[in-house]
Design a protein around this nucleic acid. Structure first.
Lengths: 243, 243
DNA sequence: CTGGGTTAAAAGTATATACATGTATGTATG
DNA sequence: CATACATACATGTATATACTTTTAACCCAG
């Protein structure tokens, strides 16, 4: 019978701490199999639901792997991963104490080309919104933002004044994002990009391709080009604090 | 009385889906306050524990905010964020069914320059390990990997044969990472990088700067340069499934 | 020895119940 | 009018119980 510490934290947290403390110490053998829920119930003197909650939360935090009918195991060391917050660029600029301004180059309704319609996973051709906006930080262009928007989810997209409301803010209000895909690459600026961002043709740019889903439907496709030398994406992440 | 769909998924998932479907539709008023647990119990005909679990998981996924004694509210729109898995490049290449090979260019002990010592947050100058490795995918160089390693945490780093074990694998075995910082940018290849990666000087490269911590101590600093046209970082992320 | 059914054990889910804890509100009292 | 208390209501936690689903091991018949 093990006695858990007499602190103020809830019981399931104490059970989590107890288990975490025993992970990696070799206490649970070379097959890394934990005691069953019922064994933990017996040894810790708490109810099975409490043990189950602790184990479930540690599992969703990536520390454990559970197999129904088999048992609970210590998860293999996780790959390095990081939460990159790809923020609203307007908010980011303001947060740095600088002035944000945007300039709308294009705001139209188009019939998508075949490749684009494929990206939207459309069965048949329907028209979509298309916008191109340049974002400035203190009158210096830093990001070229091209967006394609599914009108069935965001019907009034073309009625907005995006020199006032950031496109990002508008979209986030309108539709809940259930899934996001990002592809980050480095590309040389083409003539048009170079002109809009005020950089040389062929200069290095960070290019971010994003698709967002609302349910099973692709809501938006964004192509964000960051003026290379003026921008980078950063993040700091504590794996252990994600539980 | 609302009837939940008659699917195979567990009840608490149906409750989560029901709540998610009603977020953003304005169904829950301009103060964005959800019905209380007991009201949901009455309207959905499930037990309070099941409703509670659904609400708790949606809260930890960031969709809701709960205040004890007050109620449950729709969380303000989150910044779009994504989990970028910056994987072991060797594993990634193998997973694509290709052949991975690496070539060690440098493996030495050096006294860090001032800037580097600062990055390590060293109080006084101590020597560190320095390695430069090129990673090949089917004999095509794709990544230049420069690493600086804190010898107090990984004392045998320079004894390894990194043409056999990937540096990543070795480091992951040796030290638990408690915190990671990434900075991603796009840079033109300098002469040396261009030579090692077999690309033109000035060609666009994705550049990833990573620092990892073990406790309060900086364990490693990595500078990874990806041959631009040959590589991109991708991710797909479901916010609702991160509970 | 092999195949198949039985059984035991493990995690997964769902409920009813109880009590704890935090917040807002209304009311009585000074 | 203001403070303090009581109260109602919200979420938070803990337990006992029951049933389900999945897996592995065992035993037995062929």
């Amino acid at each position: 019978m093990i006695t858990l510490p007499d602190t103020a934290s809830p019981l399931y947290e104490k059970v989590k701490d107890y288990i975490l403390a025993n992970i990696g110490t070799g206490r649970w053998g070379k097959d890394r199999k934990l005691p069953s829920e019922n064994e933990l119930v017996a040894s810790l003197g708490v109810s099975r639901m409490t043990v189950h909650r602790a184990l479930r939360e540690l599992t969703s935090a990536g520390f454990l792997i559970r197999l129904q009918g088999v048992g609970t195991f210590i998860a293999p060391p996780r790959p390095q991963s990081t939460l990159i917050e790809i923020n609203n660029i307007a908010a980011e600029i303001v947060e740095r104490g600088n002035r944000h301004r945007s300039e709308v180059l294009v705001l139209e309704t188009i019939m998508p080309a075949k490749e684009l319609a494929l990206s939207f996973e459309f069965a048949k051709r329907v028209s979509i919104y298309h916008s191109v906006v340049v974002n400035f930080e203190n009158d210096l262009p830093v990001q070229l933002e091209e967006r394609f928007v599914n009108p069935s989810l965001i019907p009034d997209y073309d009625k907005q004044d995006f020199s006032k409301t950031a496109t990002y803010d508008y979209l986030m209000q309108k539709t809940p994002v259930t899934e996001v895909e990002h592809i980050i690459s480095a590309i040389p600026a083409d003539a048009e990009t170079a002109r809009h961002l005020g950089i040389d043709v062929g200069a290095c740019c960070l290019f971010l391709h994003r698709r967002t889903w609302t349910g099973a439907v692709v809501a938006t496709i964004s192509k964000l080009t960051y003026a290379g030398s003026r921008y980078s994406l950063g993040s700091r992440y504590s794996p252990s604090k994600s539980s």
